[in-house]
Design a protein around this nucleic acid. Structure first.
Length: 285
DNA sequence: CCACAGGACGGCT
DNA sequence: AGCCGTCCTGTG
């Protein structure tokens, strides 16, 4: 059984640039240009028609409102782009390259776990590991004749056996995932409260979790809580910021400071355009 | 076979 | 406070 809905005449939205810009790990392209993804409690298939209508099939009913929030359809991207385009020539290129990119509003626990896994790791392997965990621990859903697995809740992972986690390909991150799941299911860390904090307090709360440093914390703030004043710096961002702005002489925290001053409340959007542009064009390698 | 890619931690200065 | 070796696994 599946349920259909449409979002008509959508603007500033591109499936590839949104789902393949490195912010999420559970969307896959199909041969016909549509994408299938696992989001929250549901499975979604999404395609865009020539006239910019979005056609969505979902495993759960009445999910249009939820899905519009998830794809950040209430944010005005033309204003964001307009402001960033004025910044400088490189940012202009990055914004134009990543047209239609949206910053998704993802579920905090799944985002936290996924970005703990991202440490010292690359995107294809992160996707594979997340899927392994879902298959081993998450609820299975049938959708259009195929089986999918939701990402498990913290409680479903809190007493996982170490050997089982090892089979998911987590490596040294296994213990971080397990401890994080325990901290959250016990209430020691409250992800809902963190969402109501300002970025600085939320970051220091998140970095209490082992395996969560500044980069992972900022990814959670940006991709789950829509806190766009953060600027997560990974190797790609480091390389492109060095290439564009100042060579090798800046430290990470100086780059952070620079970006927050330059882009302010739009730092997170700036980061996402730069990241996607740098990675797709292998800038700085 | 080895080199390399990719963030956080922890031990060292 | 800052630097750097180590953690794991897939790819070239």
């Amino acid at each position: 059984m599946h349920y259909n809905f449409t979002i008509e005449k959508i603007e500033n939205f591109n499936l590839t640039h949104t789902f393949e810009c490195g912010q999420c790990f559970r969307w896959k392209p199909n041969l016909d240009g549509s994408y299938t993804g696992i989001v929250g409690e549901g499975i979604y298939n999404i395609r865009m028609l020539e006239d910019s209508d979005l056609i969505i099939e979902s495993s759960i009913p009445d999910s249009k409102e939820f899905f519009e929030k998830y794809i950040d359809n209430l944010t005005d991207y033309s204003t964001i782009k307009q402001l960033l385009l004025k910044s400088d020539k490189s940012m202009e290129k990055a914004v134009e390259y990543g047209y239609g990119m949206r910053i998704l509003k993802q579920e905090p626990w799944e985002t936290l776990a996924s970005f703990i896994i991202s440490a010292n790791n690359n995107i294809p392997r992160i996707m594979k590991t997340v899927e392994n965990i879902a298959r081993a621990y998450g609820k299975q859903i049938e959708f259009k004749g195929k089986a999918y697995n939701l990402f498990p809740k913290p409680e479903e992972l809190a007493d996982a056996r170490d050997e089982d986690l090892k089979c998911c390909g987590l490596g040294f991150r296994g213990k971080y995932i397990k401890r994080a799941a325990q901290m959250i299911s016990s209430g020691e860390i409250d992800l809902e409260k963190i969402g109501n904090m300002d970025s600085t307090s939320a970051r220091s709360e998140l970095t209490k979790i082992q395996g969560v440093g500044p980069k992972v914390a900022d990814c959670v703030l940006l991709y789950s809580y829509a806190k766009a004043d953060v600027f997560p710096i990974d190797v790609w961002i480091k390389r492109i910021v060095e290439t564009i702005y100042f060579g090798k002489e800046k430290k990470l925290h100086e780059m952070q400071e620079f970006a927050r001053n330059k882009y302010g409340e739009l730092a997170g959007f700036a980061q996402q355009y730069l990241f996607y542009y740098a990675r797709e064009n292998k800038i700085g390698c």
